[in-house]
Design a protein around this nucleic acid. Structure first.
Lengths: 106, 106
DNA sequence: TACATGTATATAGTATTACTAGGTAGTCAC
DNA sequence: GTGACTACCTAGTAATACTATATACATGTA
């Protein structure tokens, strides 16, 4: 789906953190994952800015590893702070989603 | 709930449009409504910027009416374009909310 | 060799949006 | 006439996702 840019603000970092929490992964894979999920507008540049910001904020750690099919990959995993942050994210998201559901039904 | 600023981007205009779609209303009332809903960080200035933007974009119309308890109120209602836009908004929101639910459960 | 394709990361600049922090003004109770 | 509540407005800021582009490794192929 297209035209989700504004709705993704704030949500995208939660999506990325959640995906990383399920297993170490890297930007290029995350981008493909998101596009496959249906977020058509998401391109590599968007994902890299999110990853660099999350790392700068101490929510994820990275480790560079060689690849046999291209340049080295930077694998990310959550830090303890990132795990806490992700839990808070879901609290906020759930709050918003429930309010939205109430509004939608009225 | 606090700290929802980023998640509200894109969602707030939908919330406001949905509320207006249920009956003509004005900024001050909308602000109180949102705070009562639990959006603690939302203040009048935020709502007015949303309303002025929506009107500028042709999604709502306004009509000034006298009040007996204060300054005149600007009552807003949806335009046909606003009604269409609101329907699109819910399509996008529902798409995102469903994806988020899938991610959350995994 | 040269070139295209796929893999992989990075970043400067832009647009959009919500929030901050004020200002103006009408009505009413004290 | 002062304060509280009602009601609207706006310039500036911060945060975020997107655009556009650059760099570079690996592989197949012309």
């Amino acid at each position: 789906m297209k035209g989700l840019t504004e709705l993704l603000k704030g949500a995208l970092e939660g999506i990325v953190l959640q995906h990383i929490s399920k297993g170490e992964t890297y930007g290029y894979e995350i981008t493909n994952y998101l596009v496959d999920l249906g977020f058509e507008d998401i391109v590599e540049g968007t994902v890299y800015t999110v990853l660099l910001r999350l790392e700068k904020n101490g929510l994820i750690d990275s480790e560079k590893r060689k690849s046999e099919v291209g340049p080295p990959r930077k694998f990310y995993k959550l830090t303890p702070a990132g795990t806490d942050y992700l839990a808070e994210f879901w609290t906020k998201w759930t709050f918003l989603a429930e309010k939205m559901e109430q509004l939608k039904e009225k």
